[in-house]
Simulated scan of single mutants.
Amino acid sequence: MDISIAQEEESSGELSPLKVHLFDTDNAITRFLNGQTVLDLQNSKLFSNSDPPNSIPKHLNRSLSLNLGPVTRRGFQLAFSYAGECVFIASIRLYYRACPDIVSNLTSFVKTGAHSGPVLGHCVEGAVESSPPVRECDMDGVWRSQQGVCSCERGHEEMDNTCKACRLGYYKSTNGRGECQLCPPNTRTTKKRSENCECLKGFSRLPSDPHDLGCSSKESFFLILIMIFKNAFT
């Protein structure tokens, strides 16, 4: 809240504060009740009852960016109470702060009111959660650091805060930050976002072979099998 007020000096010498009350409710308040007091405002420049009305602007005190705190309902009401002799409210401006839409760390977060609690993000297309991504919007409208992680899934690599599908001839077999790898010798992919490469016609490899191992011709493949069986029985 931005507010401009002027206060009259009091004969007792003790200045009463202008109390600001916040009612976090959707229902209309028909009579003043004791709400939450969020601010006590006082002026340092006071006017006297002998000052002409046109001199009051000289005694205005303008307070900017006063924090009224969070609200939880669709509506709220603001009230003022004053026990002193006279107070003049010249202007009031109410506004809220919010954190903007953001995409970072492969996670998108939507615009959120300041100090509204933890916000769950969503992994960008082609990414998966390693742990739930969460951020909080501070009172000044700035996002806090992200908790939780999104990472590119298999068949995708990180590029400009997005997860791009692996090109033809490339593959990625695990989730995480790794890049797409060129298919090993005698292998290929038949589509984008491939998780592994298949052997070319006329070439083979064992089911237990790693994805980064190339394929051998059938003659070489059978020789390998023979050597494996021979070693097993000797």
Score class of each variant (00 low, 15 high):
residue 2 D to Y: 07
residue 3 I to K: 06
residue 4 S to E: 14
residue 6 A to S: 15
residue 7 Q to G: 12
residue 8 E to T: 13
residue 8 E to H: 13
residue 9 E to L: 11
residue 11 S to C: 07
residue 13 G to V: 09
residue 15 L to T: 15
residue 16 S to V: 01
residue 16 S to G: 03
residue 17 P to G: 06
residue 18 L to E: 03
residue 19 K to A: 09
residue 22 L to I: 07
residue 22 L to G: 03
residue 23 F to C: 00
residue 23 F to R: 02
residue 23 F to L: 01
residue 26 D to Q: 04
residue 28 A to M: 11
residue 29 I to P: 01
residue 30 T to F: 06
residue 32 F to S: 03
residue 33 L to F: 10
residue 33 L to D: 04
residue 35 G to A: 00
residue 36 Q to D: 06
residue 38 V to N: 03
residue 40 D to I: 01
residue 45 K to T: 07
residue 46 L to W: 00
residue 47 F to N: 06
residue 48 S to P: 02
residue 49 N to P: 05
residue 50 S to E: 12
residue 53 P to Y: 10
residue 53 P to L: 12
residue 54 N to P: 04
residue 58 K to G: 08
residue 58 K to S: 12
residue 61 N to H: 11
residue 61 N to C: 12
residue 62 R to M: 07
residue 67 N to Q: 12
residue 67 N to Y: 11
residue 68 L to Y: 08
residue 68 L to K: 03
residue 69 G to Y: 00
residue 69 G to K: 02
residue 70 P to F: 00
residue 71 V to L: 09
residue 72 T to E: 15
residue 73 R to Q: 13
residue 74 R to W: 12
residue 79 A to M: 02
residue 79 A to S: 04
residue 81 S to G: 14
residue 91 S to Q: 14
residue 92 I to M: 08
residue 92 I to E: 04
residue 97 R to W: 03
residue 97 R to Q: 09
residue 101 D to V: 02
residue 103 V to Q: 08
residue 104 S to V: 10
residue 105 N to F: 07
residue 109 F to W: 15
residue 113 G to T: 06
residue 113 G to Q: 06
residue 114 A to T: 12
residue 114 A to N: 08
residue 119 V to R: 04
residue 123 C to H: 03
residue 123 C to T: 03
residue 126 G to F: 02
residue 126 G to D: 05
residue 131 S to I: 00
residue 131 S to D: 14
residue 132 P to V: 05
residue 133 P to W: 00
residue 133 P to G: 03
residue 139 M to A: 15
residue 140 D to I: 12
residue 141 G to T: 08
residue 143 W to K: 10
residue 144 R to N: 11
residue 147 Q to A: 15
residue 147 Q to M: 13
residue 150 C to H: 03
residue 150 C to Q: 04
residue 150 C to M: 03
residue 153 E to F: 10
residue 153 E to C: 05
residue 154 R to H: 14
residue 155 G to Y: 02
residue 159 M to T: 14
residue 160 D to A: 14
residue 160 D to P: 05
residue 161 N to W: 11
residue 164 K to Y: 13
residue 165 A to D: 12
residue 165 A to H: 11
residue 166 C to K: 04
residue 168 L to A: 10
residue 171 Y to D: 04
residue 172 K to I: 02
residue 174 T to Q: 12
residue 175 N to A: 09
residue 175 N to K: 11
residue 176 G to P: 07
residue 177 R to M: 15
residue 178 G to V: 02
residue 180 C to E: 01
residue 183 C to T: 02
residue 186 N to D: 06
residue 191 K to H: 11
residue 192 K to M: 14
residue 195 E to N: 07
residue 198 E to C: 05
residue 199 C to I: 01
residue 199 C to W: 01
residue 200 L to W: 03
residue 200 L to P: 00
residue 200 L to A: 10
residue 202 G to C: 06
residue 205 R to Y: 06
residue 209 D to E: 10
residue 209 D to G: 08
residue 210 P to H: 04
residue 211 H to P: 13
residue 213 L to R: 08
residue 214 G to V: 00
residue 215 C to Y: 01
residue 216 S to C: 09
residue 216 S to K: 09
residue 218 K to N: 13
residue 219 E to C: 11
residue 221 F to S: 00
residue 224 I to E: 09
residue 224 I to H: 07
residue 224 I to W: 06
residue 226 I to F: 09
residue 227 M to H: 10
residue 228 I to H: 12
residue 230 K to N: 11
residue 230 K to T: 13
residue 233 F to C: 14
residue 233 F to T: 13
